[in-house]
Design a protein around this nucleic acid. Structure first.
Length: 567
RNA sequence: UGCCUCAUGGUGUAAUGGUAGCACAGCAGACUCUGAAUCUGCUUGUCUAGGUUCGAGUCCUAGUGAGGCAACCA
């Protein structure tokens, strides 16, 4: 019964949370510590949102914490721009929900380069790592294909002293890129290819986004990730399924360095796939570079910044993540689940407004010229505290073209010749006359209003089947409205290896000028609006004072569209 | 061809050897000054074949199907 932030939904049950719960029950770890470890080589998307919600959600539910860690071990692909966007997006997504469990400090794999170097020396001294002179091609060839056996590198039995010397000189910058690597000495005959003496350090004379020119050797993901987890005291290292085959290497490295008890363990879950959506960073980059979209934050992008600009709320994204669950099954989630989460959240918070997207002039012939009557409109029918506002009603009005049919379809109950309809929050009107231009196109409707039918009036209770929205022509504010739709016409854009560019939706963006109710002049960037009977909208950052631009987040469900299609 | 993993309605998930449930989608209906929301109801499922058990979606074996793994990427 409190007005505080709503209680967290009951923790969902999934195989990872089950493990964590067991570890909490057994007190296996002093504290549950997860981490979200993106590589700063691109913008975060809704697939990352799933992972963020999982990692921060577990920390939150089990009294733990979660580290945000830049997995920045490959300076050739990483950039500060991405670091900043990732920090912003994560904070936005968890704000008011799990910000309390986010470790204040920002972590980097690169914070540990010195320690990681030391561990590598330890491994060399133990005789389980060696410097290898093979080229990349040779390494691949010696590694062998799955099913075959690998062959050992000729350098595999170098002495500890020589390895130590060579590795130090690698660090000192004596060798060119690609001429030497440090490799773990594990098992060239392993059926798991990742165990066939994996490369753990390579030479890269490249400036690093965080460490500058301090290093010219950089650890590989497999080496850096598990040890970074261990250094931070991570209890549960949660990643996606493709790392499953890396787990034996993760365990081998942590155990060989051997400093941690309890030690971190890796768990894998299936990444998110969504219908009508591309998820790979590479493909999203392609959309940006080929200018199919306007940028990473184009409202059609499945990036967190794109969805935010589109008007999607963080809580909608979190609820979505909650609903789809966590498994090891490679599923394809219907984008309708996401859309439902968005509508559910927006329905609760959106301010209702009247706006006409495709205007048709209506003249109320029995309403005096020059007169303005204020109509009280509720801001949110589900939230009394949202209050009401006044909308001006005059003789000349805009209504939606779709809300009139000269020859009405079956079951159509909006305006038609001789028919009645209610103007929301105002009068019931009757269509007396249809005015057309030379081409026979309807240009104007002449109607009479039942002047007693306004809310509170004597005939206010009269039932008419249809209610439509409207805007006073004299008061209407012209505003740009960007109508976004899904980017692809096919639910699986890349099905059977098809090029997604062959199934782009040519109507994924339509820009129109709409007639807005005057109060929208004061629209706020942080608010969400529902243009009644149409869709949810949010103000775009491109807006200028007096020249608002609205992005359509998502349409309202439309039973009539379905019905009309059937007929 | 080797190794790893997964398989529950149309979709996503729950059921931890004991009545197969939830959500989305769909379909009906109620209500409605949003063809929205809300409410009610309905349809649809344990990949196959064996086995263990009083009892199997769950355990075992085999098969089938799907995904992953052979960057000095993560």
């Amino acid at each position: 019964m409190s007005n505080d932030t709503p209680a967290a939904p009951a923790a969902p049950s999934d195989f990872i949370r089950d493990v964590v719960a067991q570890h909490v029950a057994d007190a296996s770890y002093p504290k549950i510590l997860t981490r979200f470890p993106p590589e700063p080589n691109g913008y975060l998307h809704i697939g990352h949102a799933k992972s963020i919600c999982l990692n921060f959600g577990i920390a939150r539910e089990f009294g733990g914490a979660c580290n945000l860690r830049m997995d920045d071990t490959n300076p050739t692909k990483e950039d500060m721009e991405y670091v900043e966007s990732i920090i912003f997006d994560v904070n936005w997504l968890i704000a008011g929900w799990a910000d309390g469990v986010k470790t204040p400090q920002l972590f980097h794999a690169s914070d540990y380069f010195e320690q990681l170097y030391g561990f590598a020396v330890t491994l060399i001294k133990k005789g389980v790592a060696f410097v290898c002179d093979l080229t990349g091609e040779q390494i691949a060839e010696f590694r062998g294909a799955p099913g075959d056996l690998g062959r050992p590198s000729p350098d595999r039995d170098r002495s500890v002293e020589e390895n130590l010397d060579l590795f130090a000189r690698m660090r000192a910058g004596e060798f060119a890129d690609g001429t030497k690597t440090l490799r773990a000495k594990i098992d060239m005959a392993s059926p798991n290819i990742h165990l066939r003496d994996p490369v753990i350090y390579r030479i890269r004379h490249t400036e690093h986004q965080a460490t500058g020119n301090q290093w010219c050797i950089y650890p590989m993901y497999d080496y850096a990730h598990c040890l970074s987890d261990a250094i931070e005291g991570i209890s549960h290292s949660i990643c996606t399924l493709e790392f499953e085959v890396h787990r034996p290497l993760y365990d081998w490295l942590v155990d060989e360095v051997g400093l941690w008890n309890p030690r971190p363990r890796q768990y894998e879950f299936a990444r998110l796939s969504l219908t009508y959506t591309l998820m790979s960073k590479r493909k999203l980059l392609q959309l940006v570079e080929e200018k199919i979209v306007t940028g990473w934050d184009d409202p059609r992008m499945p990036t967190i910044c794109g969805m935010r600009r589109r008007g999607v709320t963080a809580s909608a994204l979190r609820n979505f993540a909650y609903h789809i669950g966590v498994t090891k099954y490679m599923s394809l989630t219907d984008v309708a689940v996401l859309e439902h989460a968005i509508r559910e959240d927006l329905n609760k918070i959106a301010q209702r407004r009247l706006a006409v997207l495709r205007p048709l002039k209506v003249v109320i012939t029995n309403f005096p010229e020059g007169k303005t009557e204020q109509c009280a409109a509720v801001n949110n029918p589900g939230d009394e505290t949202a209050g009401t506002r006044e909308i001006p009603f005059t003789r000349e009005m805009w209504i939606e073209q779709d809300d009139f049919m000269e020859v009405p379809a079956p079951k159509y109950f909006r305006l038609k010749p001789g028919g009645e309809v209610r103007l929301k929050y105002a009068f019931i009107i009757k269509c007396d006359e249809v005015v057309k231009d030379a081409d026979g196109k309807v240009t104007e409707l002449r109607c009479t209003a039942d002047l007693d039918s306004k809310t509170g009036g004597p005939t206010a209770g009269r039932k008419v089947k249809g209610t439509i929205h409207w805007v006073s022509a004299a008061h209407a504010l012209d505003g740009e409205v960007r109508l976004y739709d899904r980017l692809f016409t096919e639910s699986e854009p890349e099905k059977d290896g098809r090029d997604f560019k062959t199934v782009l939706n040519p109507h994924s963006l339509e820009v129109i000028t709409a007639k807005l109710e005057p109060s929208l002049r004061d629209a706020r960037a942080d608010a969400r609006y529902q243009f009644e009977r149409l869709a949810y909208f949010t103000l775009d950052a491109d807006s200028k004072p007096g020249a608002p631009i609205f992005n359509r987040t998502i349409t309202l469900k439309d039973a009539w569209a379905k019905e009309a299609q059937r007929g």
